[in-house]
Design a protein around this nucleic acid. Structure first.
Lengths: 145, 145
DNA sequence: AAATAACATATGCATATACATATATTATTT
DNA sequence: AAATAATATATGTATATGCATATGTTATTT
């Protein structure tokens, strides 16, 4: 294959998404470090807090995360005492996941750290571009659903 | 913390990047499946092909990937016979990584599968928006460097 | 030249991710 | 009601990821 044939593949949507995501994840994880939360755990905890008594499958649908990954990731939060998991009354297959007081306190603790990282990105891009960026991320995900 | 306080955190740059990246990665991996390559391996192989005799550290710098991750990911390609790794003559600390004929054939085989996934995204967004999106991804990565 | 510093890569460990499949529970069919 | 299908979650396995640190090699200092 000629060099120029390969060259065009550098525009790969997935490769570029993954590269930027690696970099930004390191950045957020570094700033969140004093809280002991990683950005993945922070996002999970946030969504559990926003949707009280949510199930594994529903969390996966919201986060576009495989159910098996949700199962494993919430187990880390449970061990730390940040969430509770109980069997649902009307459907014993389902777990009902909710945040604990410790989990809520941890979110409060992590919030200013998250804001530090977040404002760096938003100010770096500018509000309008940042807004467009979020919209495009959602649209890209939508295209493949 | 009040509900509205939490609500604003849904705009998290990292959370949104990771969510979309999970989804797009599944999409590309699915279409690449007949080749046996995953998108991460495809991206690595592509960059090794584009930069002959590259080192672990240089690959990491290009892909914004930790050196230890590069070390492990290229080992998978080596086992498959897609790349060679030799000690550099002038600096025995460095590995010199290059693509094999089998690796080049595998890239040729994967290219139309990749194009199928890629065109879906580009056509879904439209050329101009896609171009802007790539630019913004690079800018976002740049902000935290 | 020996000691030390700097650099490149590798290894131990923990988390993140998803596919294939198993298990348990509820819903539907016969 | 028993059999079957559908659904929700869990487990086995493999890849992806990065931090802390170890190892081996080259460069610099004394």
């Amino acid at each position: 294959m000629s060099r120029s044939d390969l060259y065009g593949m550098r525009r790969c949507a997935c490769g570029n998404l993954r590269r930027t995501t690696r970099s930004i994840t390191q950045f957020y994880d570094q700033l969140l470090q004093p809280s002991g939360l990683r950005i993945t755990q922070f996002s999970l905890l946030l969504n559990i807090s926003l949707h009280g008594n949510i199930s594994v499958g529903e969390l996966g649908a919201i986060l576009l995360m495989d159910q098996t990954t949700v199962t494993r990731n919430i187990e880390i939060l449970r061990k730390q005492g940040y969430i509770n998991m109980t069997k649902e009354d009307d459907d014993a297959r389902k777990k009902s996941i909710s945040i604990t007081e410790n989990g809520a306190r941890k979110l409060v603790e992590a919030k200013p750290l998250w804001e530090q990282a977040q404002s760096r990105i938003e100010q770096g891009l500018g509000s309008e571009r940042y807004h467009d960026f979020l919209k495009t991320l959602k649209d890209v995900a939508q295209i493949v659903q």
